[in-house]
Simulated assay, not measured.
Amino acid sequence: MHPGMHPIDDDLVRRLLAGQFPRWAGLAVERWPSGGTVNAMYRLGDDMVVRLPLVQGGAGDVLLEREWLPRVAHQLPTRVPEVLGAGEPAQGYPWPWSVYLWLAGEHPEPGALSQPVPLAEDLAAFVAAMRSIVLPDAPQAHRGGPVASLDDETQAAIKELRGIPEEDVDCDAAAAVWEEALRASGWEGPPVSLHGDLMPGNLLVEGGRLTAVIDFGCMGTGDPACDLFPAWNLLPRDAREVFRKALGVDDAAWIRGRGRTLSQALIALPYYRSTNPAMAHNARHVIRTVLDEG
């Protein structure tokens, strides 16, 4: 998926565990199929998972989670990853890595939600709880800055998609939605705490209800519109409105949130279309959903 990816296999994971966590060295290790783009995941025994960055950029996410997850976990209404072991570079592997408690559940699928409205309420409760947490000295979230900070990359993605006719993206309509987001009033309040990457692949559900949120590598502070992603990357129209009402989102924030979500999808589609089917599929879903909303 990316240049500079480090090769990771079962044998490397076993050697890292044997060298740093010998108490777990005899447990079964199995690659976990994941649509994630930054980390490799390995089940460890029945109740743990090893998470290793694939690229150098993921190393900072590992360290961020180690520092901030223990500070926010008890303030959130759902389970979040719990770091059980802090691995360090070794055996030719160059970056920090972690062992986490395994969290059960399934990733929700757009268009196949068994309880979309209750799930929307659960997601709103999580976002509201994140916003209420005070994180002194926390970094700016990965996508927490002004909408305009995303403009160059978004415009480049729209231009690239114009050259991929088989994707059938209405690039003029996408550009119009993006321009509306750029014109919308910016966030004028203090930065709020954000997860920063509320993709379906970072959510776990059981019985249709949200039970856990994972991958806090993009967390930090910034514009609250950054955590409105599920409105368009997951929820159908009626549940989207429930999500919006529960969070009390005004028109400007809604337009910014829609633009941010569209931006991410426009950038992801040409980048992942031949390397990560899950990411490309969700990007297409977001683009259709946003443009259908009009």
Rank of each mutant, 00 (worst) to 15 (best):
W95T: 05
Q56Y: 13
Y93L: 06
G58A: 00
R66H: 10
S34H: 04
G85C: 06
L16P: 00
G145Q: 03
W97N: 03
G87V: 00
S132V: 09
W97R: 01
W102V: 08
Y42F: 03
E88V: 12
H107N: 11
D47P: 11
S98Y: 02
L17D: 01
D11V: 11
D61S: 11
G58R: 00
R31L: 14
W24T: 14
L69T: 02
D47I: 10
V50D: 01
P110A: 03
A120Q: 01
A104K: 13
G26Q: 06
A128M: 12
P77T: 07
A138F: 04
A128V: 15
Y42I: 02
L103G: 05
G145H: 07
P146K: 07
D47Y: 12
P81Q: 09
P94C: 04
A138M: 03
A125V: 10
D137C: 10
V13R: 07
L54E: 08
L135V: 08
L12F: 04
P77V: 04
L119M: 04
M48L: 15
L150G: 12
A125E: 11
W24V: 14
T78G: 11
A86S: 10
L113N: 06
G87H: 00
G105V: 03
H6T: 13
V13N: 06
P7D: 08
P22D: 06
P146H: 05
A124Q: 05
P7Q: 09
I133R: 10
H107P: 10
L84R: 08
A90T: 10
E67Q: 02
F126E: 09
P136G: 02
G145W: 06
L150E: 15
G105K: 07
L84Y: 06
V147I: 14
F21V: 07
A25Y: 05
P136Q: 02
V50R: 01
G26I: 03
V13T: 03
V72I: 10
L76N: 08
D10P: 13
Y100L: 07
R131S: 11
A28Y: 08
L103F: 03
D47Q: 13
P77E: 05
D11P: 12
D122H: 08
L16C: 02
A40T: 05
L52R: 05
A104C: 14
V72M: 07
Q56K: 15
P89W: 03
S34W: 04
D46P: 13
H142R: 15
M48Y: 15
D11W: 12
V117P: 10
M41E: 14
P96Y: 10
P22F: 05
M5H: 13
E88C: 12
A59L: 02
L101P: 13
L44G: 00
A73R: 07
A18Q: 01
E106V: 14
V72D: 01
Y100M: 04
P33F: 05
G26R: 09
V127I: 09
V50T: 00
A138H: 02
G57I: 11
P94N: 04
L64S: 00
P146S: 09
V38N: 10
W97F: 02
A86E: 00
A104T: 13
D122T: 04
P94D: 02
F21E: 11
